[in-house]
């Protein structure tokens, strides 16, 4: 699953544009993750601040 650190996130939307699944949405001053996130981590790479982290549940 995707962890969003809201204290770090600058809600810029760079992650939304690179998500191949369209699973992210920038509402206003917060980012929301929809159900179809596949945990690929591309969004976390795009983030200028490091606010996103894919957590693998073992």
């Amino acid at each position: 699953m995707l962890n969003i650190n809201r204290d770090v996130c600058g809600y810029c939307g760079a992650c939304v544009a690179v998500c191949p699944e369209g699973a992210l949405e920038l509402i206003d001053a917060y980012l929301s993750v929809e159900g179809d996130c596949i945990g690929c981590g591309i969004c976390a790479r795009a983030c200028p601040l490091g606010a996103l982290e894919v957590v693998h549940e073992d």
Binding site: C12, A14, A17, V18, C19, P20, G22, I42, R45, A46, C47, P48
Partner: peptide, 10 residues
């Protein structure tokens, strides 16, 4: 969808 390498992170 924008390819990661073509998304400038600013």
């Amino acid at each position: 969808t924008v390819p990661l390498r073509e998304m400038m992170s600013c």
